[in-house]
Each structure stands twice: as C-alpha cells, then as structure tokens.
Nucleic acid binder design. Structure first.
Lengths: 141, 141
DNA sequence: AAAAAATAGTTGCTATAACAACTTTAATTA
DNA sequence: TAATTAAAGTTGTTATAGCAACTATTTTTT
C-alpha cells in the first residue's frame, strides 16, 4: 500500500517545525538575530563564559555549526570569543554590552512566542505532545 | 520568569524533527538520495510530468529550493527536465528508467520508516499529535 | 494590438545542519 | 619522558530553507 505524503508523520512534524521557525525568524529579524543564533544567546544570557563545546553539547548540534554561528555573533558585536587560560584549545564566549542589552528585548519576545504557540492548548495536551514526540525519537535511536 | 530552553515547545519539536530527519537520511544515503529529494521523487512516482511549480505548491516550499533540488536529481540521473510545449516558461519533470527503478527500493523503506516512528503509539495518539501540531501552526498563521 | 501584470524558473545571498579531514593543544599511556 | 590518544576548533563539502531581484514567457488590461 502506497502512502500519500501527508500520511507520513515525520513530514507533518517537519512542516510544523518550518512554520514555527519561520514565525520566530520574522520576530527576531528586526534585531539582526537568527533563531539558532538566539539559542546560543539564551545560553549566554543564562551564564556566559561557556566554551563552544559546552554550547554544542547542550544544543545537541555539531561543533562546526556552533563555530560558524558564534563567528557570526561576534561579527554582529553580540559576543566576544576569548582564548581560555586553563585550556588554550578552547574559546570562551562572553557577552558584549550590546549582547547583554539585547537580552532585555529578546527574552520577552521568545516568551510571548511560546505563549502564542501554546494558545488554546491545555497543560495536559502539551505534556501529551511532548510524550509522544519523545517516544518517536526513542523509536529511531 | 525566564524559561529554560526545554520549556519552549518549538525547540522540542525542532529537535524531534532533526532526529527523525537524521534517521531517514541515513536510510536513504545508500541510494544517493537526500530526504527532501525523496519527497520530490515520491510525487513523481505517483504521477510524473509535473512542473516545478506544482511540486513547490504541494511541498509548501520556495520555488528556488525546488529548482535546485531537481537540478541535483537530474545530475544524479533520476529525472529529466523537459520544456513544456504548452507553456515554454515551465519545465516538466519526467522519471528516467533509473528513477523509476529507484521507487521499488525506496517506497518500502519509507513505509518501514513510518511504521518505526509510530511504533508503540495508538491511532488515537497519532491523531492527537496531528491535531495539536495543527493547532500550533494555526496559532502562528 | 500595445502596455501592464502575472507566472515559471534562475541566480545570488544568508542561515541552518552534519560529515570528513585537518591543526593545535592537552591528557594518557608505555 | 616520549609516544599515543583525545579533545577543541576550523575548513571544505553537501543538503535544506527562504528572501530579493532578475529573465523569459504568458495572460490580462486598456
């Protein structure tokens, strides 16, 4: 039996991800910040001085991507990369004043975004969707 | 109140998408076919002779992406692009013998993949997750 | 029929994502 | 201690994703 595209749950999830990402991208664009760059900034607003490797482990992303994203964040003037004294291989990431200031604008936006996404959904439904998506991830581990 | 990264449902959905896509990518790699290229092939296995614009409308993707993907599919020898006689602006996509043959290998793999993703989940849960994700998409329209 | 608007596709740009191969430095082992 | 192994980051390549601006056609207006 041949399935049509919409029968594939992974395609449905992918489309959902694209919709949500596209929206958050438009919200962040005025601040010259891309969605994944924002995730790195969020980790630094929480605690700065982390190195690239820590970032890549937390975000479950390849270190090459993180390296390129932090280069861009540095070009934009939001962070500075400083060679660690303890381990000369590693680069610590520090917020610039501009980067610190950005947080006060962005954090409310991301919170509002999350509220909007969850609008009309109950806690129970949100837990349910997390549980089911987790199960799907486990299935392909 | 500051949320931690995992509290953002969109980030959770994004990670799920990456996990699933990564798995299907590894399954398709031996056939020299990438996941999104496969979606185009699936549409052509269903009915070939479609033009690029039809593909981009069905897949809800930018026409530039489709153009580049079909160029790659043509380079790989799976399809041929033929200028339409009715409308000289448009390119119709036709399967090559190699492209037709590929379908018999790939379609079972994608069906198995969908079964694996859904393993241990009930019809009710799958409908529920689709309903909730649809609601989230609506929220950001 | 001529002018304007719409459509199909392309090129250039930026961003995300992961893999392989590489350099430099640190930690481990022999 | 010297040799090996591991770790942190970088560079190159391929694929996906969307925006702006462009060419070449076709359709619609005037």
């Amino acid at each position: 039996m041949k399935l049509s595209l919409n029968d594939y749950i992974s395609i449905f999830i992918h489309q959902t991800d694209l919709s949500l990402t596209s929206y958050v991208k438009s919200q962040l664009a005025p601040f010259n910040l891309a969605p994944e760059q924002n995730l790195i900034m969020m980790l630094l607003w929480e605690k700065d001085g982390r190195n690239q490797n820590e970032i890549s482990e937390i975000l479950l992303k390849d270190k090459t991507n993180i390296a390129r994203m932090v280069v861009n964040l540095e070009k934009k003037g939001f962070i500075k990369r400083v060679s660690s004294e303890k381990d000369r291989r590693s680069l610590q990431l520090f917020l610039t004043p501009k980067g610190k200031e950005l947080g006060s604008s962005i954090i409310p936006i991301t919170n509002d975004f999350n509220k909007l996404v969850c609008k009309g959904l109950t806690e129970k439904e949100l837990n349910e969707v997390r549980r089911i998506l987790s199960k799907m991830c486990e299935n392909v581990q």
